[in-house]
Design a protein around this nucleic acid. Structure first.
Length: 773
DNA sequence: ATAGGGTTAG
């Protein structure tokens, strides 16, 4: 009865707090907290204290502390209320204030609780305030309370998360001096720390150590190691560990199966993946949505046509997701298998029959459109979700994000990401890495750097993929030195760089003429037991070709056979391009024959390279022959073909130019910013800079998307006009011809303009959908 | 403390 009364009183105070001015809020809450704490309702007291702290500024928090402290004496409440106060500050990440309370408690002889101190450690480690971490640790050893097993675990985890495994390991040794026996949890933390930086051998060593010391590994331990081995491409060893699970008297669960199935999928061994999947079912372990995603991803990317239908039927029958129908799974399956058309047909059929679709079906279609680079279609589908009363889910947004990044619509992608965060959707490294890469592709270094900083600010520590994306971006932007420094930083943290990382750096050095550095890195790669792959070889060959060092390029090409690499279409195209650049069309031709001899057929890129070569040596007739040849071979010319030919045509004599241009317009006319740049610069080159500016103006009027090169050309035209007044020439046939080409191009852009900038940004749509429902 | 999506060559 008394409990009830005081509780009522506490809530009465709390209610007053909501209505009155801020001064009494603080006082009322203080009283409420003390009463609740005294009545052993500490969790309620905690909520109230946290509520106050999150609403008052840093300055006023001092007043609150004083009031709480005074109340502590007045109500003679349990000391735990001060603990509560400390936790309140920790919850809102005010480490300084929490630390002050701790000191004051010590001064007044109040014993702080171990769990509150552990929470403080957690926060200090997360914000990287190591100075205070060590001070606090020393205080504990000197003044108590003595650190417990849990305290050490929190510290080991904190340091490992930050990438300081060696400190985690030292703490592991220290804890044993303080009579703490390491448990499975702390071993798993260390094993995981080694594994996420690619050091699975150390992880294995630690597992053996734990067994020797009488600590039993659990299913998580096994999974961590299996995953790490798979990620290193060692599925054989992963399978052995998997088979050892029974010996440890454990039984595999769905997570472990998913991990190993994923390993096989990534190793492109779909057969093994499906076998394991069958084994899992026969053991009575139900596959879940993750299994479904892994298998369909694998099939979509590496699988064979004939496996798809069986898998699809199988998964449909299982009815994997409880909240989605067989129809939804069919749509999702068709999408994953790359049969978007069939999926859409099936979907429309469903709607006609009045079967209500779920978010799953929508998500699959949106994801499929985004993968195809048809983000406009993705939006269309997305918008119709609203009509069915469906709210976009976290994966709907991720798919849209993927499409936007591919389409270089970074501003909208960023807004969407912010909206996702605001809505409380889970946003992880993957999304941030996509945007980081997207900004780099746009050439927006500031945007990319912001992304990198933002990741840091959100305590999302970059993994190997994020590091590689960052290093690649910096390399591409020509900041090779910076990229190299990031690479060193990555090494310091303890990450083992992979092929992606090395190849990005090597590419950076190659494209800036630093072949020596590139080759040094390749050697280093080999020494670290990382065999250079086809990408590495192609990058280096390209580096030599760029410098015109064809002899060295061929040496590198021959080296491939020695290291067991098989040249691919890119290798041949690179070398053919190298000869073309060196104006050596004879050797280029010879290499095409070599390519045929090795069983490769030229693709559109091969033809474009050769056409470029012939245009360069002013042999337009040969270029035209190549164009005819590719058509005969059943290859479709693309914008690169068009632009290359057009550039050649503009340099050619007028009669032939007109004939070729007519032919081009009929077959491959899809202009882009390169087309306009080509034409604008030809006006300039042929003494008509005023036409460059005139057409630029017309293009600007239709909000044409110029690039950096466009502005360089316009600037040159402007300077030509300023420096040279004798530009006025009579209207020549060539001038009319260029005008004609430009008009056709301009007209194309007028007709294919994006519908008046009205395409709604996805984040606005999300707002509509979520407020509407 | 454990599984899916994100990064490389012409």
């Amino acid at each position: 009865m008394k409990l009830l009364e005081t509780r009522e009183t506490a809530f009465a105070f709390f209610k007053v707090a909501f209505r009155n001015d801020s001064e009494s809020i603080i006082r009322s809450c203080c009283v409420a907290a003390h009463i609740l704490a005294a009545e052993s309702l500490r969790f309620l007291a905690q909520d109230i204290v946290t509520w106050v702290i999150s609403r008052i500024g840093v300055r006023r928090s001092k007043d609150f502390v004083e009031i709480m402290w005074g109340g502590h004496h007045q109500y003679e409440s349990d000391f735990s209320v001060l603990d509560t106060l400390m936790r309140g500050f920790l919850r809102v990440e005010m480490a300084t204030e929490a630390m002050e309370i701790l000191c004051r408690m010590r001064e007044e002889g109040v014993r702080p609780s171990l769990s509150a101190i552990s929470t403080l450690f957690n926060l200090l480690l997360r914000i990287g305030d190591y100075g205070r971490v060590w001070k606090l640790f020393r205080d504990m050893l000197g003044k108590g309370p003595r650190p417990s097993n849990y305290t050490f675990n929190v510290m080991v985890l904190g340091f490992c998360r930050k990438g300081y495994v060696s400190i985690g390991e030292s703490l592991f040794h220290v804890m044993q001096k303080y009579m703490c026996v390491p448990d499975t949890y702390v071993y798993n933390i260390l094993i995981n720390a080694y594994c996420i930086r690619g050091q699975s051998s150390d992880g294995l060593y630690w597992m053996h150590l734990m067994v020797e010391r009488g600590c039993k590994p659990n299913i998580v331990t096994f999974n961590t190691l299996i995953d790490a081995l798979c990620k290193e491409g060692n599925t054989g060893q992963a399978r052995k560990i998997f088979d050892g699970i029974q010996d440890a008297c454990l039984s595999p669960n769905v997570v472990i199966y998913n991990t190993l199935i994923n390993g096989y999928v990534k190793a492109r061994d779909i057969g093994q993946a499906i076998m394991l999947y069958e084994e899992m079912k026969s053991r009575g372990i139900a596959p879940d949505s993750v299994t479904f995603n892994i298998l369909f991803f694998g099939h979509y990317k590496y699988g064979r046509e004939e496996d798809g239908d069986g898998l699809l039927r199988d998964l449909s029958v299982l009815g994997l997701l409880p909240d989605c129908s067989l129809y939804d799974i069919t749509v999702a399956g068709l999408c994953w298998a790359g049969h978007l058309d069939e999926a859409l047909e099936f979907f429309e059929d469903m709607l006609e029959k009045g079967i209500p679709p779920s978010v799953v079906a929508f998500n699959s279609i949106i994801a499929a459109y985004s993968r195809e680079g048809l983000e406009e279609n993705a939006y269309e589908v997305y918008k119709t979700m609203d009509k069915f009363g469906l709210t976009p889910s976290s994966s709907t947004c991720s798919s849209l994000l993927f499409g936007l990044c591919k389409k270089r619509r970074l501003q909208e992608a960023w807004e969407l990401l912010c909206m996702m965060i605001k809505k409380g959707f889970p946003v992880n490294k993957v999304a941030f890495t996509m945007l980081l890469d997207g900004y780099f592709r746009m050439g927006d270094l500031v945007g990319a750097q912001n992304m990198w900083n933002e990741m840091d600010r959100r305590k999302m520590f970059p993994d190997a993929v994020a590091f590689s994306a960052y290093i690649n971006g910096l390399s591409k932007a020509g900041l090779v030195e910076d990229a190299y420094n990031v690479f060193l930083e990555m090494l310091t943290i303890g990450f083992v760089p992979n092929n992606f990382t090395y190849n990005s750096l090597i590419s950076g050095f190659c494209s800036h003429g630093k072949l020596h550095e590139a080759l040094k890195l390749e050697k280093e790669m080999r020494q670290n037991g990382l065999p250079p792959d086809i990408f590495t070889a192609n990058i280096i060959i390209n580096g030599f070709c760029k410098q015109g060092r064809m002899k060295s390029a061929i040496d590198a090409f021959m080296d491939m056979y020695r290291t067991g690499l098989v040249p691919d279409i890119t290798t041949y195209n690179t070398l053919i391009g190298g000869y073309c650049k060196a104006l050596d069309m004879v050797n280029a031709d010879e290499f095409v024959s070599k390519m045929y001899a090795n069983g490769w057929y030229p693709d559109i890129t091969t033809y474009n390279i050769q056409i470029h070569g012939f245009c360069n040596i002013q042999k337009m007739n040969r270029a035209v022959i190549m164009l005819d040849e590719l058509i005969t071979a059943g290859i479709v010319p693309n914008t690169v073909t068009y632009n290359t030919m057009m550039n050649g045509v503009c340099n050619d004599i007028l009669d032939r130019a007109m004939i070729v241009a007519a032919k081009l317009l009929k077959m491959a006319f899809v202009p882009n910013v390169i087309t306009t740049n080509t034409l604008l610069s030809h006006f300039c080159k042929q003494g008509m800079p005023e036409k460059t500016l005139l057409w630029s103006q017309k293009l600007r009027e239709i909000s044409f998307d110029f690039d950096e090169t466009s502005y360089i050309i316009m600037n040159r035209a402007y300077n030509n006009i300023k420096g040279n007044t004798e530009f006025a020439k009579e209207t020549s046939g060539k001038s009319l011809f260029l005008d004609f080409l430009m008009y056709i191009t301009y007209d194309y852009f007028c007709r294919n303009r994006p519908h008046g900038k009205t395409s709604q940004s996805p984040f606005k749509l999300i707002e509509c959908v979520s407020t509407g429902s």
